[in-house]
Write a protein that binds this DNA or RNA. Structure first.
Ligand code: SF4
Ligand code: SF4
Lengths: 138, 138
DNA sequence: CTAAAAAAGATAAAAATAGTCTTATAGGGG
DNA sequence: CCCCTATAAGACTATTTTTATCTTTTTTAG
């Protein structure tokens, strides 16, 4: 259970690759797709989602492509995963909107709250900077 | 992402209810299904899976039904969830069988290992006894 | 023998996933 | 202005998974 979809996996690979490139280099989608071995049309959809929420910035037309929307240390794995997979919801009672009428008395409910928090915390603690292994200015 | 399916949710509800019953009382599937508001035929499939791995013990024929396969304190949420949803696999590189050829160098891989461990630990720490709120012998 | 109850397997509708394809839009260069 | 390149957006499709239901078989108490 709880498996990341291909879309999520592709999303991570794509944006991590982008983070390894020089900060100001506009990257072609086709180059990214080839580098991380993802169907280009599928990756296009993913990057469109990134673009909408500002994770990446896109340039159209000749010389166009993608760069990160903010510096790599300000983008976490949680940002990336939630961008394409939606929020981390281990069960329907932890959507924030209190979906299950049993949740007030249910002894299982707090377990899912805990799972959600732990997973979010782990993913939020990892930035693209670390994943890309960018070297600091000397 | 990572949402428990209805099957998983139903499975938990069903077996937790069973754990609230007196230890030696054989319960009808139809009673359990009604009590936890799950389609009886669907719950039947779920309890068949439980039965196969010994989480519950089934009795066929007249007077038949289900009881827990072992005491409630020896059955964890992890047991229940994995019984019907399969192992906790946050990404395809943490199946145990090392599926992704990138996993040796991939910086993301350890994150999924960590997620998997945390979730498993949380679920394994909760037993049906706690969930059922069984009272101790005085 | 018979009625009750779970086991097993076949079937099926609905939803999610994993893509593909086509058209529109924007920008740069000649 | 026209053409080439590149992303944006939306329609479309195939496959897989989920969520069941139905039917037949097996078991067992009485
Ligand atoms: S775990 Fe409890 S609160 Fe959450 S969906 Fe299930 S019954 Fe409802
Ligand atoms: S996170 Fe890394 S090791 Fe895991 S599947 Fe993705 S590329 Fe492979």
């Amino acid at each position: 259970m709880m498996e990341l979809t291909r879309k999520g996996e592709y999303a991570i690979r794509g944006i991590v690759y982008l983070a390894t490139r020089p900060d100001d280099q506009v990257c072609l989608l086709s180059d990214i797709a080839a580098a991380v071995d993802v169907p280009p049309t599928f990756l296009a959809k993913i990057f469109q989602q990134f673009s909408k929420i500002g994770l990446v910035k896109s340039y159209r037309g000749t010389g166009g492509g993608f760069i990160l929307g903010r510096t790599a240390d300000k983008i976490t794995l949680l940002d990336v995963v939630e961008a394409v997979e939606g929020p981390i919801i281990p069960n329907r009672c932890v959507t924030g909107g209190d979906d299950c009428e049993r949740s007030h008395t249910c002894k299982v409910h707090p377990v899912w709250v805990s799972v959600q928090k732990q997973v979010r915390d782990i993913l939020a603690a990892v930035s693209l900077k670390e994943l890309a292994g960018k070297q600091e200015k000397p």
